[in-house]
Amino acid sequence: MTLSSARRIELFRRMLRLRNVELRIESLYHEDRMKTPVHLCIGQEAISVGVCAHLTNDDSVSSNHRSHGHYLAKGGGLNELIAELHCKESGCTKGRGGSMHLVDTAVGHMGSSSIVGGGVPIGTGMAMAYKMRGLARVSVVFFGDGAADEGVLYESVNFAMLKRLPVVYIYENNGYSVCTTTRERQAQELIFHQVLPNKMWTQTVDGNSLDAVNAAAATAIALARSGGGPSLIECKTYRVREHAGSGVDRTGKYRDPAEIERWETHDPVHGLRADLLARGLLDQKGLEAMEAAIEAEIDEAFRAAVKSPLPLDEDLTRYVYCED
């Protein structure tokens, strides 16, 4: 499925918005007003935007610790995200969950597991529920190469294949689990690439290309929606930033600075922007207006977050069990 020009511009806007939100988080992180660990997805924007573009609010996403992209691409509120990072009452979980546990049930962002691999069976179970309830919904599971080291991925995908569940596994292979490369941790590529196509449809794509992700996601999600069972898309990408926090370590401690630079020239946002400008789908003025609107929205989110109150102390022991 190829993108129309208007759709292409809109998806670029979403990627740019996500990028600029994270750049702002990064630039202000040292002020220590944001009180949560953050795992930035700078350089991976095409994946969450390209996949979520095919989902409705009834479809759900099961996310992980690197979750800002999944949350925003699924339609999660920006003000609520920024407030959550500040541990404020107006946050998406009222300042209880932080960056790794974002939730916006109204748009089908049903939470993230901060435990690597934890969200994989959960998203699989949600697909099982949709199938049992006869709903034409799709469950998307975002997981990284770290989760691909975990045994529960095997258990979950096997179950999804057995029961032909409407689930799409999006494997964001960004090359690193903290400081260890995927190659150093995995003896071979993900074993599920070898399953028979009638058990599960799989594809490997350039995760930094919106077009590639979009096309594969369109196929996978349509398949799930029409009862065709699970699918898995490996999106090859790169974690430009560090595992957590802000900045890039270019000292060569665990990765070659030249490798980082190479990937920076293959940046999904910059690449798409250049392409849109070159094709005349967007001009400099239009781009500036787009960026200004995004910046204004981010300004407002940070202003509101700072002003919002902290969670109440009296609430500390609430919501352990149901209170109704």
């Binding site: 759900s60 099961s62 049903m110 939470g111 934890g118 994989v120 069976p121 959960i122 998203g123 699989t124 179970g125 949600m126 697909a127 099982m128 529920a129 949709y130 049992m132 309830r133 469950s139 045994g151 529960v152 258990e155 979950s156 096997n158 179950f159 057995l162």
Partner: peptide, 27 residues
């Protein structure tokens, strides 16, 4: 459909049940 034989996968069984519960079922 409602009495589901699963693989021998304790982590998968409970993790999947969590997702089913979040999606409105009572596993």
């Amino acid at each position: 459909t409602r009495v589901i034989d699963t693989p021998l996968a304790e982590s998968g069984i409970l993790g999947t049940a969590v997702g089913m519960a979040l999606a409105g079922l009572r596993p």
